[in-house]
Amino acid sequence: MTELKELHFFATPEHNCSYIEGYKAKTLFVDPHSSISVNAFSQLSNLGFRRSGKHTYRPHCDNCQACISVRVPVDLFQPNKTQRRIINKNKDLVVKKSTPHYSDEYFKLYSDYITYRHADGDMFPPNKEQFINFLIEGEQPCDFLEFYLDDKLIGVAVTDQLVQGLSATYTFFTPDPDLQKRSLGSYAILWQIEECRRLNLEYLYMGYWVQSCRKMKYKIAYRPLEFLIDGQWILIR
């Protein structure tokens, strides 16, 4: 079993920050040639690391700590009125689990999502190689949670399995305007929280929250949240 002390890390040179315009960022990576056990990856998640394909990383900036890891303590979470409404709107959806793999159906959904919602980001324009590198490659246990409406795939939540919880790696879903009232992105998070409960897991890890980043503000709706601050998880209600 891989231990943290056996892993090698390296930091990137400064590059443009993906979250705050005009800022420079550095990233700390685990050596991508390392074999990371589930136990070690779970410990890394507790230290604020995330996974993107084969790469396990966390921000490592010299003069900025704006990126804060957040996780939902499942036993304390109770959906609010808006979230209960979202759950009720989506009771007719069927959710299936699949191992990560490429399909034209997945890529079409992913491509439509990126084009509609993130055309201003560094993931646009989407391509197959990017999709595979980002969501399929990697050795960690992972599920594609498929959301179906009347046998039609309308969303996928990519979810890593940890010893102590689940990690919401990425979610993509249809931009169909007729389905916008379903709030599919929010429902995917709520479903994963409930899945943690079903599996008797403590946390849903939701990646990084940056206060000044508009696209990340949705994360603070899932209270109470734990924030990783100065190496300690702090409960914020």
Rank of each mutant, 00 (worst) to 15 (best):
I68V: 13
S167I: 00
D178M: 08
R85P: 06
I36C: 06
R85I: 11
L166G: 00
F9T: 01
F29R: 07
Y106L: 10
Q78G: 13
H55C: 15
Y148F: 10
S37D: 10
Q130I: 13
K152R: 14
Y222V: 08
S52P: 09
R182C: 00
A168Q: 03
G231P: 10
D230N: 13
S45D: 06
N127A: 15
Y110P: 02
L149S: 11
V156H: 03
L149P: 05
S45F: 07
M1V: 13
Q161W: 02
I86H: 03
E3W: 08
P32E: 05
L153E: 00
I36S: 05
C61Y: 11
I234V: 15
Q164S: 15
I136P: 00
Y203P: 02
Q78V: 10
E194P: 08
R182I: 05
S186A: 15
V210M: 03
D178I: 11
E105Q: 11
S111H: 03
E195T: 12
R198H: 14
P141A: 11
S183F: 12
Y102Q: 09
F147Q: 02
F147P: 02
M206C: 13
K54A: 11
H33Q: 13
V163I: 13
K217Y: 12
K26L: 02
T2V: 12
I220C: 12
G155M: 01
V156E: 07
L28I: 08
D151V: 14
H33N: 14
